[in-house]
Simulated assay, not measured.
Amino acid sequence: MHIHNLSIQNSILNSFISEIRDVNIQKDRMRFRRNIERIGEILGYEMSKYLNYSAQLVETPLGESKTDIFDNDVVLCSILRAGVPLHNGLLNYFDKAENAFISAYRHQTDNPESFEIIVEYLACPNLEDKTLVLADPMLATGQSMVATFEALKPFGTPKTVHLISVIGAEEGVEFLNQNFNNDTHLWIATIDKTLNNKGYIVPGLGDAGDLSFGEKLQH
């Protein structure tokens, strides 16, 4: 797997990452969502450099301009609900993309330190020979991303797969590296070292879904 960690080189992206981590700035949900969206735009832009292009002539009022235009059939797939702001950022740049949505959540087992990933809702177009972009803001253990990809397999085999995440743990990145083929690309804003005993990224930022949309009731 090709790993593109954007935090290796300093950029304005650092400011957005700092703000989504900050416990005081996090209190503003609209700002938190917007920062996730902007990070999605940056990740999408960097990813676009690895897609396919073809030359096209564009007619201007004064003549013609030859330009290499992006020509991939892209499907953006986000994991609900935390993935919505990230999805919006990607969609701002890939405005002609098809879209897929899937719900995946952690189900605690009898062991309080372990869990399984449950997939319930899935809406997806045909993926055959398309560019699949699978987005989840928090890459903790990596199990959600792998379970989501498995759930998408009945919809066809993508030509290429790109994984998008905001913050990941080294353990999760390694898990994806072991479970996706060598042609897969991971685009990630930054990578933290550890997980706590509940599988949350440390230092991370907390629960991205709660910070975006409010705390959820457990049932």
Rank of each mutant, 00 (worst) to 15 (best):
L127Q: 06
P137K: 05
N126T: 10
N88C: 11
E170R: 11
P112I: 10
S103W: 03
I25H: 08
H107D: 15
L134K: 02
L122P: 07
E98L: 07
E215D: 14
S78N: 10
D210Y: 09
Q178L: 09
N52A: 13
D129Q: 15
L186T: 04
S54Q: 15
G142E: 00
P112N: 08
L62V: 04
W187F: 06
G89M: 04
T60M: 08
P125K: 02
L90E: 05
N10L: 10
K193P: 02
F94W: 01
H162F: 07
E113C: 15
S18D: 10
Q218D: 15
H4F: 11
D22N: 06
R38Q: 11
V119C: 10
R81A: 10
G199S: 02
I191S: 01
V173D: 00
A55Y: 11
I36D: 03
A147H: 14
M30L: 14
Q218G: 15
S18M: 11
L217W: 10
S18G: 11
L91M: 11
K130F: 02
S11C: 03
G204D: 03
P125F: 03
S114D: 15
T194P: 07
I17Q: 01
W187A: 02
Q26L: 02
N52K: 13
S144R: 03
Y121R: 06
A100H: 11
M138I: 01
L163H: 00
L132S: 04
K27V: 09
T148W: 03
L62D: 02
P125E: 01
N88S: 13
D129K: 15
G142Y: 00
